[in-house]
Design a protein around this nucleic acid. Structure first.
Lengths: 333, 333
DNA sequence: GTGAAAGCGCTAACAA
DNA sequence: TTGTTAGCGCTTTCAC
């Protein structure tokens, strides 16, 4: 049986309220009593039961985090941001992985509510009507993050994707490229963030009076992109493309792998740019020119949003810094 | 104010005990009463308060996981294993990151105890006397995982590193290599798992009557290894090394990056092998020949160990499969 | 099969 | 400054 506040009170010869007061520093306690209590706590090795405390204060100090897959790099960086900032305000993270299953997202949403979490952050890669409408009616504070889909009605954290694409296009143009292909992922294009990225790409191409060359593949995974390698390469050759701007780093890496295996040199024969700056981007050879999406900061801002409404007085959001990483995979034509 | 069991009882015109019984299926309830209760629950949208439940049952259904850095690939895979298995037995994961700070490890250990976790898994990269002795005296179930250090007295999950090294050495010998360098990380060699790996390497070299070529650098990071690139290369040339077996994939990648930047071809000019099979290993070009350490399974086995003592009847541990991944970075001489 | 009541460990009025 | 007491929402005897 664990030591409780009663045991401490008995040993210190005071009431349990006094013990509670010294633990929480909530009300003045005489030095004498405080000393005795502290001594008893030390002797007994007493540690307060947070469960009991939560029950009465109605504060769990828990933030529920539902992710797609913690093994995915960008997800882990977001969680890192959430965790570090949460910790500063004494919040703990409770984690659930959905692996792209909306049923699981729902289950966690409900489970976390029963666990009395004070806020929920969802990192999803899918979009499901049942989930979003459940979230809309949730009384708990929530932030919904989706790397692929726009989520109009849900509290989220936005990046200026449009600007990011423009910046990358400017870089490629500076390097002398004109025939720039945009490699994207088509599915539900109107719902996704690709929508405005493509717009931005198209208007950049229009400015130099070039026909946009948009190529769709239906994946955001490295290996599957690799498997589409030949068809992409065919298109590259047909359209005399000199640079490929990929909507995600994973596509860029998959494509570079395919080109490597075909003995085609990047960037000598073709330039490749990515989007995201996942961990491999700077490790891979050649290093990948890409847009750095600030995953850590996205996590940090998300939890700040939540803490702001439950704790109040949380420092202001930093502006989310999107930056281009000019590296080895793109060169002058 | 949230709906409580009382509200349900009132609406269903039964006592709270009856409501509790139908929620938990703990005792027989008349069909009539059950129906009314279920109806009320549905109408009110009642969700039990797990905090209150935990307080009385003394079951938090929480496993505390203290990691070095969730952003690190192998860590995230371990957590993945923990989470998936934990979920099967209705356990949730509460996460804390120490970032190599033993003070933080201690703080989490204590914090998690106050949160009434039923078990703790620590994934550490350092070793600290205060932490280990605290753990030894902990009444909570615990598993201590350390990728680098041996932890003689703590419950942990072991891999057969010795055998793994032998397997890789056999592979390299088959490819015709004789001058094989072992690139290791020296610090506290006697305390680390490197101790037995080096032994295994040495005996393999002895078998073919070759002098062991062991080279120490004091890091397990990609970038820092890169910075040691030239000195390693010097040693390679001096000793006419044809293959480098690195004690961690990170070293292998760092070295390959350096060689790439020097215009030295892997595997044409030199073969490189790693250890771990981190995510880049199969993505990098050339793909890295390495030993696959089963991180996911390590997590899974860890939590199984814990669940076994708190839940009982948990399925048996699977044997941890160490496998060699023969890929592109090593070729016949 | 059911309800009353005690109590999990703690905080927070309230009264002294 | 201190102690007494009433809960927080729930499970679980125990008696009916």
């Amino acid at each position: 049986m664990a030591i409780t506040i009663k045991d401490v009170a008995r040993m210190a010869e005071v009431s349990i309220s006094t013990v509670s007061r010294v633990i929480n520093d909530s009300k003045p306690v005489s030095p004498e009593a405080r000393r005795k209590v502290l001594y008893a706590i030390d002797q007994l090795g007493y540690e307060p039961n947070e469960i009991a405390r939560s029950l009465v204060t109605r504060k769990s100090n828990l933030i529920g985090v539902i992710v797609d897959d913690i093994g995915s790099y960008y997800v882990s960086q977001i969680v890192r941001g959430i965790e570090e900032i949460g910790r500063m305000y004494n919040y703990d993270i409770i984690l659930g992985s959905s692996y792209g299953d909306s049923e699981k997202e729902m289950k966690f949403l409900q489970l976390f509510k029963t666990k009395q979490v004070e806020g929920i952050i969802v990192v999803s890669e899918i979009i499901d009507e049942k989930v979003t409408s459940y979230i809309e009616n949730l009384k708990t504070e929530i932030v919904y993050l989706n790397r692929y889909y726009n989520v109009p009605n849900l509290p989220t954290v936005y990046l200026d994707n449009k600007k990011a694409v423009t910046i990358m296009m400017e870089h490629l143009l500076e390097l002398g490229h004109k025939k720039i292909m945009y490699l994207t992922q088509e599915k539900d294009i109107n719902l996704t963030t690709e929508h405005c990225k493509i717009e931005s790409y198209t208007s950049s191409m229009n400015m130099i009076n070039e026909e946009p060359i948009i190529y769709n593949i239906d994946t955001h995974r490295i290996l599957e992109t690799y498997n589409h390698g030949q068809e992409i390469l065919d298109e590259i050759r047909e359209k005399e493309v000199t640079a490929v701007f990929c909507c995600q780093d994973e596509l860029a890496i998959g494509l570079m792998n395919y080109l490597y295996d075909q003995g085609i040199n990047v960037p000598e024969e073709i330039s490749i740019a990515g989007y995201g700056d996942i961990s491999v981007a700077s490790i891979y050879r050649p290093t990948l020119t890409t847009i750095k999406e600030p995953y850590y900061d996205i996590g940090a801002v998300s939890i700040r949003k939540i803490l702001k409404s439950i704790v109040g007085k949380v420092s202001d959001d930093i502006e989310l810094p999107i930056r281009i990483k000019k590296r080895g995979s793109c060169k002058t034509i």
